[in-house]
Design a protein around this nucleic acid. Sequence first.
RNA 1: GGGUGUUUAGCUCAGUUGGGAGAGCGACGGCCUUACAAGCCGUAGGUCGCAGGUUCGACCCCUGCAACACCCA
Length: 918
Amino acid sequence: MEKYDPKNIEQHWYQTWEAAGYFAPSGQGPAFSIAIPPPNVTGTLHMGHAFQHSLVDAIIRRKRMQGANTLWQMGTDHAGISTQMIVAEQLALENTTPMELGRDGFIDRAFRWKDESGGQINQQLRRMGASLHWDTERFTLDEGLSQAVIEVFTRLYEEGLIYRGKRLVNWDPKLQTSISDLEVISEEEKGFLWHLKYPLVDQPDVYLEVATTRPETMLGDAAVAVHPDDSRYQHLIGATVTLPLTDRVIPIIADHYVDPEFGTGCVKITPAHDFNDYEVGQRHDLPLHEMMNPDGTICDSAPSAYQGLDRFEARKRLVEDLEAAGCLAKVEDHTLMVPRGEKSGVIVEPLLSDQWFVRVGPLAEPAIEAVESGAISFIPQQAENIYFAWMRDLKDWCISRQQWWGHRIPAWYDETGAIYVGRNEAEIRAQNGLSETTVLRQDDDVLDTWFSSALWTFSTLGWPDETESLRTFHSTSLMVTGHDIISFWVSRMIMMTLKFMNEVPFEKVYIHGLVTDAEGQKMSKSKGNGLDPMDIIDGISAEALVKKRTDKLLQARQKDRIERSTRKEYPEGIEAHGTDALRFTFCAIATSARSMRFDLKRVDGYRNFCNKLWNAANFVAVNTEVLVNVSDREESTADQWIRRQFQETSNKVNLAFDDHRFDLAAKHIYEFIWDEFCDWYLELCKPILSSSDCTDAQKSGTQHCLLETLESILRLAHPLIPFITEALWQKLPKNFRNGPSIMIAAYPGSIESDSVSDPASADIEWVKAFVGAVRNIRGEQDIAPSKRITILLQAGDAEDHRRQKQHALLLDALAKPEAMNWIEANVEPPPSAIQIVGTLKILVPLAGLIDKSAELERLNKELTKLEKEIQRVNGKLSNPSFIANAPQEVVEKERAKIAGYQKQKTDFEAQKHRVAAI
RNA sequence: GGGUGUUUAGCUCAGUUGGGAGAGCGACGGCCUUACAAGCCGUAGGUCGCAGGUUCGACCCCUGCAACACCCA
């Protein structure tokens, strides 16, 4: 057989599966469905995707093998803002702008870009082995989904759950659109705290000092607020101050929002440009003084000196002028949270504007109920807290965006400004009796991308039509996503789906952690610490990796730093590991923790694991090439043992899957294949297959057990490592596998096994302990594994005698004795190294082999260990309340333990004296 | 400031009703033993963040504190 090379198998098998139609629902069995969190249509696969889809694919493949009617619904998202931005950047390179192209031209252009680049993420998903149902792939802007969006908007409007109004929203001055909270990234930055003096109207020589991180917003101030209980300012509440550099007079108000400990305890209130101040303004009925245009320049209501200035330039000028006017008390260094647009990178402004909103209150109530009642459960359950915290304090959702790429809002205005909402213009004219001569103009804005995402589980299945798919696969079974979008996506899906489907979008939500780099840092382009899953699969040279990480960076300083750290971390680039190793790694690190450090060394380890499996299969193939043909087969003790071990592993893996503990599933599979199947079972098979003392019935039994166990292992591991398992499964003799592909073979189940009577396992455990004892002596004494040694056995019980005799073949192969002889208990053995298994003494006579001092050292080590244990157990047993209160069986166990330890201690001490006497 | 989570071997992490602390990687020593050197065999290494409490008994339950991470203000 050729060497393990993932490249040779992975591509081939995916194509075969897809061509065979295995990804489609079988149409039989209970329905099981998962909707993919739609990736951006123009995007590429990042580590988060790769991680998430590895888990989902494992779930999906297992369910499919278990006979469920399984659908993993594929689809992509139009990603309004980021796509619009990318296309605008492309246009800029061609020295043109979206405005020049016009709305229709721009949308055409965006669709072209989508068609050109849209295939990449799909190809990458295929490389990951994701068994998505491609045939019914959807896109948020396609015809059907757009219909669903319009339907939902119209119905919500008709019920008064969508309204238009002027509110404070997050405004991106560069992209010139409102953006969602999700797209605002607040990070700590160094800045200043300016202390400004506002003189009292009645006593111009007395000042109130306010501290602000944004002095330019003073132009929009409507009040100064103090805490109602702050004794320093009690007498001033209700008085007025003059706003410096302007002729505005503003009141001093009292509000609990103010933190009296912070700064001077006086806060300037700018209701039109700050979310908190807006609420304070609402409470006190303050006017909204707007001082900024949508492009970030100072607007015309400001004093003429500042009109038209950019906001940062205005800040500089204002601070200078305030200082000149004697109104600047001091400037302090201050770190503050600066909100920036995720896509544009510029500082976001809270700005008043006309927007569309969803009134979420009436939708939230049933959505909270659905989780409280258990109709939807979060895994891990703790994640519910994030959901409840968000839902209890829900603000109306701004759904309009001043963009072109997206679902255009189905609202029209006539010349008087009256609003008509409907499914299309014709419907509106008919419903409202508008004549042909009435001019209607459609709203220019599009909907927030999340609006269409909120309908995802049912819009992708054909809603509003009552399709067969919708009936079969909705509610979906499970949603897998990160905790960062519970608020923005999960909650909205729950609200919208309950509203329009009258059922939950999914029964369970599995919330996974964030994949970070080895230092625990979030992977990001600007940090240059990101990894491309494809590079881990295919490998990449150091040069190419550096280029990739630094290519699109603007700052040279960053570039040098990233290049240095990249070359240090990956001096040789990244080796090819294959998809299976990467997928297994993702499963293995998927604990319930909030973040997971991704370490390439883990992938190395699991690549080695795949290689191990490959070679084990090779061993099985070589040793079963010619099957011994007999009518009755005889199973060896090892065969019985490994079947049992497999069954227990299968039980544990199924349990882990049911608990969504992918790390445990991976661990049990890994340990069984490597530690039990490879390290012991294959070794135990060798003597049986090669010995002339073994009968054909025995050889045949072992050959069958080898093939059957391997076949079972492959099925058990398939959901995690689909490619290598299929490749190896296909190489098995046809009568040892069932069906054309492992993908649709039956998944190993859970079987209650009798845990009491298991003589085979007890025997093999004894063999392992025996061999381990001899290996320990060899290791400590530096005796080569290949060197045959004399082994003497002393004491022991009847079982020891039986087992030694019955399993002599195995012991001979693994312990490699020259001779193995029993000596009477009262006979003084020759100077030897000793190990004790239970009551059996295993002795390796010196005969020039043994290093005396090494052996004394080893014995002392054993004795220290024993003494520590004896002391610990004695402490327990000499405690009367332990005897009185602990369960009888625990006390008995401790007593049995100490008896064994004492005996061994005596034996080791005697041995120590013998060796010392040499 | 509020909330959530984390703290176990040098590193990354398991530890499922409280009853003898585990794995992988790394380290050290020895092996080309006919599936695999991407391997095999052996060894070392931990006051389970700190301080209390409950209990016969605490990595595990309770309280407080500290550090770190993320979310929200």
